[in-house]
Amino acid sequence: MILHDFPLSSASYRVRIVLNLKGLAYEKRNYALRAGEQRAPAYLDVNPAGLVPALETDGLRLGQSLAIIDYLDAVHPEPRMIPADPVARARAMEMALTIACDIHPINNLRILQYLEHDMAQDKPAVDGWYRHWVEQGFATLERLLPDTPFAGGDAPNIVDACLVPQMYNARRFKVDLTPFPRVTDMADRAGALAAFAAAAPPKV
């Protein structure tokens, strides 16, 4: 099993967490995103989107972190990341997608580079953009999170796998977390678990 990765990619970080939680061995291949290595023809054969992560396993090449997590749940169902119960599944996906669709895509590296290079925005403006969308998403999660030890319930699931990397980046960009005590508490509780800690990027 090969994970095409970049340590600071929050989408890749999600997949590393899930692989660790499931106890799956894998090989990492890292790409320097700012240097454009993910757009090299050889990598585009693996993932035509030119993004990380991508997973190669048993002849399958798969991009998109949530698709990868769904696949891993199907072939390695324990511990389960996406609940089987329809209501619990819908709630988990609502929260995971708040991060994966409402926060992350408009804050990932290619968007920040576009703002900086193509739109001629300075670093304070770009960082302000980043913080704005994190704050919007975290405000939603603060209301959605259940009264349980983890965002996923009694044990971490796909929500925690999305939340912990987003919290890591929120701190990198100095988001004021004071209005989001439940989000912060749940992210920190999950992040302290061994599977999460082992997936974390190096200190930057």
Rank of each mutant, 00 (worst) to 15 (best):
A90V: 06
R80H: 06
R16L: 15
A54S: 09
P146Y: 03
L115N: 08
L193I: 13
N20P: 10
K28G: 05
A49H: 11
V18E: 04
V204F: 15
L62I: 15
L33Q: 06
S10Y: 04
P77C: 08
I2M: 06
A42S: 04
L97T: 13
A84M: 02
M93E: 01
I17V: 14
K123F: 08
A194D: 15
D102H: 06
A161V: 02
A197D: 11
L115D: 12
D102C: 02
I2N: 03
M167D: 14
K203I: 04
P124R: 01
R80S: 09
A90E: 04
A190H: 01
K22Y: 05
R110N: 07
F196D: 04
R171E: 15
A32N: 15
E94W: 09
P105N: 12
R110M: 05
A11I: 03
N107W: 00
A32Q: 13
N157F: 09
D45R: 12
N169V: 11
D147C: 09
K203T: 06
A35G: 05
R16N: 07
A92F: 00
V204E: 15
Y31C: 02
A120Q: 13
V126Q: 04
K174E: 14
R171H: 11
L141W: 02
F173H: 08
R171V: 07
R29N: 09
G59F: 12
K28L: 07
P124N: 04
M81G: 00
L193N: 12
L97K: 02
A198D: 15
T148K: 13
L21A: 13
R110K: 11
A11D: 11
E116L: 11
E94V: 09
D45K: 14
P124M: 02
Q166H: 05
I158G: 00
S9R: 02
I2H: 08
D154Q: 12
T148R: 12
M95V: 02
P86Y: 04
A35R: 14
A54F: 13
S10I: 14
